[in-house]
Computed example of a mutant assay.
Amino acid sequence: MKNTVVALFFLVSLGPVFAQKKLFPQAPGMVSYTYRHSFQKNVAATLDTIKALGITDMEFSNLFGKTAAELRKLLDERGMKCSSFGVGYPDALNKTQEVGQNAKTLGAKFVRVAWIPHEGPFTLDMAKKTVADFNQIGKKLKDDFGIMFCYHNHGFEFQKHEDGTLFDYIVQQTDPKYVGFEMDILWTVFPGHDPVALLNKYGKRFKLMHLKDLRKGIVGNLSGGTPVENDVALGTGQIDLPAVLKAAKKAGVEHYYIEDESPSIASQVPQSIAYLKSL
């Protein structure tokens, strides 16, 4: 009897050691695009809504009529931060100084571009120009502002090229000192690729991640587009999120942002947050 009591005591005391660790212990960030319609009406109130969900890390892809300084003030007043600033390709290339200054004012450590302007299928010549532009943009942002430039994949870059894809070409040909990547997991799965395999392949090249899920039954393509209703709450779609998050942690992804383009964010975003907490 005595031995049984001692054994039970040790099991109870070691309980926390055996308890499963949370797969995603931190609070996620939020992409402003998720709340784009609300932000266009009232920036301060929208920030309050997001803060009430327990989210304080933002990726802005629009200033919503504010200056960078005005937006930074609203964030500071709420104990929130902007870690990544998204801009269009033309601005990144032609207004690099202004983009870098705005990002620095916001407090962002990353500047992100999410679309390469093109018509028709994405080609090797387009990829070659992209590589040259990205290296130029990234060097200027790093040298002048200490900011890392990242490209967010959008699905169309996965055209076949040699033994891989044009996305592989862009990753391999850009300078790791100046160009990182933000993996959008929906826009990796939609064109038929495995986020886990890419994270394992390129590791620390991936600095940021968009957390989103694709409706079950949807078959993708290389268009880079799908109806916004196909964005569903995390854990309810076809993406193996636990496997993705494990690979992302191993790769060293620094910021994770929920992005939900659907009109159902009022119900889906809290559901996504709850799902991440449950893992």
Results as ranks from 00 to 15, higher is better:
residue 41 K to W: 00
residue 226 T to P: 00
residue 58 M to G: 01
residue 23 L to N: 03
residue 259 E to H: 08
residue 48 D to K: 04
residue 16 P to M: 01
residue 268 Q to E: 15
residue 21 K to S: 13
residue 130 T to W: 09
residue 88 G to L: 05
residue 177 K to P: 05
residue 206 F to S: 05
residue 171 V to A: 07
residue 181 F to I: 01
residue 235 G to W: 05
residue 12 V to N: 10
residue 229 E to T: 15
residue 237 G to V: 11
residue 113 V to Q: 07
residue 235 G to K: 10
residue 65 G to S: 03
residue 212 K to W: 04
residue 248 A to R: 05
residue 90 P to M: 08
residue 175 D to A: 00
residue 175 D to P: 03
residue 44 A to C: 00
residue 223 S to K: 09
residue 67 T to E: 00
residue 35 Y to N: 13
residue 192 G to T: 02
residue 66 K to N: 11
residue 27 A to T: 15
residue 142 K to H: 13
residue 235 G to V: 02
residue 7 A to E: 14
residue 275 Y to K: 03
residue 116 I to G: 00
residue 122 F to T: 02
residue 102 N to P: 04
residue 261 E to K: 08
residue 15 G to W: 08
residue 108 A to Q: 10
residue 128 K to P: 02
residue 250 K to V: 09
residue 222 L to N: 10
residue 35 Y to S: 13
residue 21 K to G: 14
residue 105 T to P: 11
residue 133 D to S: 10
residue 37 H to N: 15
residue 175 D to V: 01
residue 190 F to E: 00
residue 149 F to N: 02
residue 126 M to G: 14
residue 37 H to I: 10
residue 176 P to E: 15
residue 245 L to T: 07
residue 154 H to K: 09
residue 211 L to C: 11
residue 112 R to C: 15
residue 35 Y to I: 13
residue 167 F to V: 08
residue 264 S to D: 15
residue 237 G to S: 09
residue 138 G to V: 07
residue 145 F to S: 05
residue 85 F to K: 09
residue 278 S to G: 07
residue 259 E to W: 06
residue 169 Y to W: 08
residue 273 I to D: 01
residue 196 V to M: 00
residue 127 A to I: 11
residue 99 V to D: 08
residue 89 Y to I: 05
residue 268 Q to W: 09
residue 178 Y to E: 12
residue 23 L to Y: 00
residue 201 K to W: 13
residue 69 A to M: 05
residue 141 L to H: 07
residue 244 V to A: 08
residue 85 F to V: 06
residue 29 G to R: 09
residue 204 K to W: 02
residue 176 P to G: 12
residue 187 W to P: 07
residue 63 L to S: 08
residue 64 F to R: 02
residue 262 S to Q: 00
residue 161 H to G: 02
residue 97 Q to T: 14
residue 102 N to H: 08
residue 170 I to N: 06
residue 24 F to L: 05
residue 118 H to Y: 03
residue 228 V to A: 13
residue 48 D to Y: 06
residue 198 L to F: 13
residue 33 Y to K: 07
residue 49 T to V: 12
residue 45 A to L: 10
residue 146 G to H: 02
residue 40 Q to A: 15
residue 251 A to Y: 09
residue 58 M to L: 14
residue 257 Y to W: 06
residue 247 A to N: 12
residue 49 T to F: 07
residue 67 T to Y: 04
residue 91 D to Q: 13
residue 272 S to L: 14
residue 137 I to V: 13
residue 184 D to C: 03
residue 186 L to F: 14
residue 238 Q to N: 04
residue 165 T to P: 05
residue 121 P to G: 02
